[in-house]
Simulated scan of single mutants.
Amino acid sequence: MRRTLTRLPALVLAVALAGCGVFGKEIDMTENWSAAKLYAEASSELDSNNYAKAIEYYEKLEARYPFGRYAMQSQLDIAYTHYRADEPEAAIAAADRFIKLYPQNPYVDYAYYLKGLVNYNRSVGFLDRYVPVDASQRDPGSALDAFVDFSVLVERFPDSRYAEDARQRMLYLRNNLAKHEVNVARYYMRRGAYLAAANRANYVIERFQRTSAVESALEVLIDAYTALGKTELAADAKRVLDLNREAGRFISDEPEPGEVSLARKVWDYLSLDEN
């Protein structure tokens, strides 16, 4: 009995050492994994929505195998994983890192598209996914960033597989940015700042042609000129509004583009499954 009692602490110590490694060094089960193995496991964790573990494996792959297609692909996948994990700042930072390291890479268009998509989704509030909200009422900061990101993509890579979706999102963003300016003009009207309201309305008419906001901007402009006592200018604006309405030149709101699935697997980018 005494022998059993004296051996028990040694057994517990052995188990503890096995779990923590010798002298407190934690055992890394991935230590001998190849680049392909790390990438496959990271992709599997991403598919299972285990984002933290996926990023851990991707980062280990980059650290151990910094050269080659798997490492390059991992950098894009890290950006995508942060996007999926609702970590916009980290996603944009990872995409920017890829753009900086591989500016001539044939898949850099994806990095620009992902940046735009992250900012696009940041411009849409959480509640908007469940409750209809006027996007033009929000701060346009992220929407402007998204518009710029998509603009770079369309300008530099007009034939990209992501270009058409980017163009559609730009139309939607541009319309909302114009509506935001109209909302500001209406705010000025409520505050009695009629000249500021007229200037904002004119800005929309001049800079955001072919958006649904132009019709509203003309309405604000008429009210502002009327309040300022500029009857002739108000009449001119009214005439332009009526003529365009009769001709059916005003367009309706651009529908919000639907979410598109983003290719992220290695064969989608580098065709590593091909011999």
Rank of each mutant, 00 (worst) to 15 (best):
N202G: 14
A185C: 09
R207N: 15
R207S: 14
L228F: 07
A178Y: 01
N183R: 12
Q209Y: 09
A178W: 07
N176M: 09
A213N: 06
V204W: 00
V220L: 04
S216A: 15
I222L: 02
A185S: 07
E215T: 10
A178L: 05
Y203N: 11
A224E: 01
M189D: 09
V182I: 02
A196G: 10
A198I: 10
A227Q: 14
A201W: 05
A193V: 00
Q209D: 14
A178H: 08
V184W: 06
T226H: 15
M170Q: 14
T226F: 12
Y188R: 04
A201I: 03
Y188I: 10
Y194P: 04
Y187D: 05
R174S: 07
R174T: 07
M170R: 10
L228Y: 08
Y225P: 11
L177P: 00
M170K: 06
L221I: 09
N202Y: 13
V214E: 05
S212I: 10
Y188W: 08
A227N: 13
V182Y: 05
V184F: 01
G192D: 00
I222F: 07
Y203E: 09
A224F: 08
R190D: 10
S216E: 15
L228T: 12
L228I: 06
L228K: 11
Y203R: 07
L171N: 11
L195Q: 15
R207P: 09
M189R: 03
I205S: 04
H180F: 04
R191P: 09
R210C: 02
L195S: 13
I222A: 08
E206Q: 14
M189K: 02
R167N: 12
N175D: 14
Q209H: 11
A196Y: 01
A201Y: 06
D223C: 05
A201V: 06
L173G: 03
A227S: 14
M189Q: 08
L177M: 11
A178E: 10
G229L: 02
N176K: 10
R210Y: 08
T226Q: 15
A217G: 06
V182D: 03
L218R: 14
A217P: 02
D223K: 14
V220S: 06
R207V: 12
Y194E: 06
A185W: 03
L195R: 13
V182F: 06
R210L: 07
T226I: 08
D223W: 09
E215M: 13
A224Q: 09
E219N: 10
H180L: 05
N183S: 13
D165I: 15
A166C: 12
H180K: 01
Y172H: 11
A224R: 04
R207I: 11
